[in-house]
Simulated scan of single mutants.
Amino acid sequence: MPIVLAQVAMSPPAVVAPAPPRPSIITNPDWFMKPTGDELMALYPKEAQANRVEGRAVIQCGVSARGLLMDCAVIREDPAGAGFGDAALRMSALFRMRPQTKDGVPVSSGVVNIPIRFSLPPPAPPAGLPPPPPGSLDSRTVQMMKKPGPVDYSRLFPLEGARRGIEGHVILQCVISDQHRLETCSVLEETPAATGFGAAALKLSKLFETSDKALDGTASTGRPIRIGIRFNLPHPG
């Protein structure tokens, strides 16, 4: 009986297209146009500004041959959901980089990561504060020999303020003791009010120590002193 050999057609191996090369990261961008402070404030998220919330965002953008940013995306926002990412994307149109060149011709050149920090100016001194007592000192007229450090501020930062992403400012009125410590302190102003910053500032006041003389050479002991204490939210590096 004859044997018939079947022929099996073998398909050629599939050709897998190579993955496109990953764009290079520009680590030292040469900017010749960046947003001004006024432009940053114009794009500051309104609700965050009203609540005195500061934040930051990092956007990643491609760079055209003309040095314009394109195809931007938010890769980090802190605090999340506060609008800083969207504000940073709108701000991308205000950047312009000196383009890289090849054989003297400008070329598009990879992607760039741009960190943008949104900071608010210190709150204006509240109106209606009583005038300082006669002979009163402040942080500009007497040297502080000891002050609270970042760990102290972090430890005493009000939980409500941290939960809401709110920063605060407090003005205290105190007296300099014989040991050059602050005593009999009271809260003159707390911003925002009723968020725990006043109580935290009173605890921090125990960690200050002044020099024995004011900057004009007069004794500091027993004199009233008015100090401002600002509570800033920590930002990731």
Rank of each mutant, 00 (worst) to 15 (best):
M1Y: 06
I3G: 00
I3N: 11
M10K: 09
S11N: 11
V16A: 01
A17P: 15
P20T: 08
P21Q: 15
R22H: 11
T27M: 07
N28Y: 12
P29N: 10
W31V: 03
M33L: 05
P35E: 12
T36D: 06
G37Y: 07
A42F: 01
Y44E: 06
P45R: 02
A48L: 09
A50C: 11
N51A: 11
R52G: 08
V53T: 15
E54Y: 10
G55D: 00
R56C: 07
R56M: 08
R56D: 04
A57Q: 03
A57F: 09
A57G: 09
I59E: 02
Q60T: 11
R66W: 10
L68A: 07
C72F: 01
C72G: 01
A73W: 11
A73I: 01
V74Q: 03
I75T: 07
F84T: 01
A87K: 02
A88S: 09
R90Y: 05
L94G: 09
P99Y: 14
P99F: 13
T101Q: 15
D103K: 10
G104V: 02
V107I: 08
V107E: 06
V112H: 00
I114E: 10
I114A: 01
F118Q: 00
P121K: 14
A124S: 05
A124F: 14
P125L: 00
G128I: 15
S136P: 06
R140W: 10
V142G: 00
K146P: 07
K146Y: 13
P148F: 15
G149W: 11
P150S: 12
V151H: 14
P158V: 07
E160C: 04
G161P: 02
R164G: 12
R164W: 13
R164L: 12
G165R: 06
I166Y: 10
E167T: 03
E167N: 05
G168D: 12
H169N: 08
H169P: 03
C174V: 09
D178Y: 04
Q179K: 10
T184L: 00
L188E: 07
E189P: 02
T191G: 14
A201H: 03
L202I: 02
S205P: 04
T210K: 03
G217L: 05
T218A: 02
R223W: 11
I225N: 10
R226W: 04
G228V: 01
R230Q: 14
R230N: 12
F231Y: 09
L233S: 12
P234F: 10
